[in-house]
Design a protein around this nucleic acid. Sequence first.
DNA 1: AACCAGGACGTGA
DNA 2: TCACGTCATGGT
Length: 229
Amino acid sequence: MTRSAGKRNSGRLCSLYESLLSEFGPQGWWPTIGSQHPASGSQEMAFLYHPGDYSFPRTEEERFGIIAGALLTQNTNWKNVEKALLSLHGSGNLSPERILSLPLSELETLIRPAGYFRQKARRLKSLSEAYLKADGDKETEELRKYFLSINGVGPETADSILLYAYRRPSFVIDAYTRRMCSSLNLFHGRTYDDYRNFFQSNLPPEPGLFNEFHALMVEWGKRNQKKPI
DNA sequence: AACCAGGACGTGA
DNA sequence: TCACGTCATGGT
């Protein structure tokens, strides 16, 4: 990659980001559980987005909810994941310690709406154990390798955990990102890491930027799946 | 009623 | 490496 090609890609990415942001607005990822009507004291829980807030997860449950959600949403509609996470929360089990102490069959029942529930129940236990043992002071790429070594955690899940739960500058690549790259003739790569390297080498390593950019591309994908551009 | 959704893994060639 | 089957629920 020549220096001029690199600058050209950076420019394209930055203007793409700006136009997506002005068209769709801040997406407020990652959604977390909160009460829907805090002022009225209603206890009805729902998933809340927080547009423009790129700060660290506020509570331990919030952070673990992101991690569990990243695993549960694999090849699954997010609405189904919400049901699973709400049942974990509602039963007081949305923590790594509680997940580990739950009998496997009970965990399966709680997360059933998220699909692949047998596989995901086992993997959620191993991820919980790994999360408890994780060294949050590790350098980003080392922490990434650590999570990638856990069964059930592939590159997209690892990067979602790093970016949204740890606020590390690790760019998340998903099916929408690839579709967008090819349909805009922006980049064509072979592997996951090809795409990740493309974004990371052409953007400043800011977690807030990576956060919003990924979420915006997902929104673009959702809007353009029925009515292609 | 097939098809898709914010993937990952095991297998055989 | 890589193509292919498997894992499962819920909405369209």
